[in-house]
């Protein structure tokens, strides 16, 4: 892995995902991800949203070359600080995982080793990745645990994961992910398994830490309001394809694809002391095995017409982006006035 990039990045992008396609090995037609592209700049917070089954977690795993057995990268490149880190047929270079890119997974009980003490799980990152001695690593672990808001961190070193609450476990995961001071943090549904009040605490923690370290973040979630509080740009994924992308304000105020509109109408939020309960989209997300011609969303789309079945929509740039970011949507009718009012919420 080359040194901290001084000048390599062409346009300042920290992470660039280009045409990423992931399929099931032995079944090249079954695409879990289909030509996914987007970038994350230094210090930027970008969200990847979609229903479950949209492939969003697969993106996270692909970035770190952690795709589990039947899944494999079929095409595309991922570049970090100007240098390629993920390409078909190549393993991820040393020094990226943990050191440049950290990751927090969804279920901390599953993600932590049940038979290893919590302190050691944090410390080994430091001894292996930063060459610290065990004593230094232990001291730094206590600092990290305090930083993520764990009370009495010194006492928690010898504790096992199942002895902690869900919120505390997730804080430990965050401490592990940040131990080596990566430039990019991937958070894959980090609060989905937590109660809403604990979720709020953990999200606030993530935002604070990001601010303090000037770190870029890829925040993956199915919860649109949560994303609005966390990210400045959003990429909407459906059936393995990018449906829309742009700044959060543009996309939420002027959604250009019916899917995004549906997602917005489906969200539950608490706006201005008012609980707004969402109305989910009819039907459910397709599995990678389902072959759907044209636009993958057309069977559930209220605006679908013949062209949607015949031709796969490519991303169109919307002219009226107001907040400095490109606003694109992969819909044949993107940017055209609604015939039906589909704005909910």
């Amino acid at each position: 892995m080359p040194e901290r990039a001084q000048s390599k990045a062409e346009d300042g992008a920290l992470l660039r995902i280009d045409g990423l396609s992931v399929s099931v090995s032995q079944q090249p037609g079954m695409l879990v991800l289909d030509d996914v592209s987007f970038t994350i700049g230094r210090g930027e917070s970008v969200a990847l949203v979609g229903e479950s089954g949209s492939g969003k977690s697969t993106v996270a795993l692909a970035v770190l070359d952690l795709l589990p057995a039947p899944l494999a990268l079929s095409s595309g490149t991922i570049t970090f600080a100007g240098a390629p880190i993920v390409r078909p047929g190549h393993a991820i270079p040393q020094g990226v995982r943990g050191k440049r890119i950290g990751i927090v997974f969804q279920d901390p009980l599953d993600a932590l080793n049940p038979t290893m003490r919590v302190g050691e799980q944090v410390a080994e990152t430091l001894t292996e990745g930063a060459g610290m001695s065990s004593r230094q690593a232990r001291a730094r672990t206590v600092e990290l645990l305090a930083e993520v808001g764990i009370p009495q961190p010194r006492d928690k070193l010898r504790v096992y994961p199942h002895e902690l609450s869900g919120g505390q476990r997730q804080r430990v995961m965050i401490a592990i992910a940040l131990a080596l001071e990566p430039d990019l943090l991937i958070a894959d549904e980090p609060t989905t398994a937590l109660d809403v009040t604990i979720q709020r605490q953990v999200i606030d923690l993530l935002l604070r830490l990001r601010e303090a370290r000037q770190m870029a973040m890829l925040f993956i979630s199915h919860d649109l309001p949560l994303v609005a509080e966390v990210a400045s740009r959003v990429v909407v994924l459906y059936g393995g394809r990018v449906m829309e992308s742009g700044s959060v304000r543009d996309v939420y105020e002027h959604p250009a694809s019916p899917y995004t509109t549906g997602l917005i109408a489906a969200s539950t939020s608490f706006d201005e002391a008012h609980l707004v309960v969402g109305r989910p989209i009819r039907g459910s997300a397709p599995s990678p095995a389902e072959v759907i011609p044209g636009c993958r969303f057309h069977p559930r789309c209220e605006r679908a017409e013949e062209v949607c079945v015949l031709e796969r929509p490519m991303p169109r740039l919307l002219p009226a982006s107001r907040f400095g970011e490109r606003h694109e949507a992969a819909c044949h009718f993107a940017g055209m006035p609604d015939r039906k009012e589909a704005h909910g919420a």
Binding site: G98, F105, T125
Partner: peptide, 18 residues
């Protein structure tokens, strides 16, 4: 080998041996 914590361990950057 397919468990979540092994995935985390790899994601931390630990060597396969470790």
């Amino acid at each position: 080998l397919q468990s979540g914590y092994v995935r985390t361990a790899r994601a931390k950057g630990l060597s396969e041996w470790r």
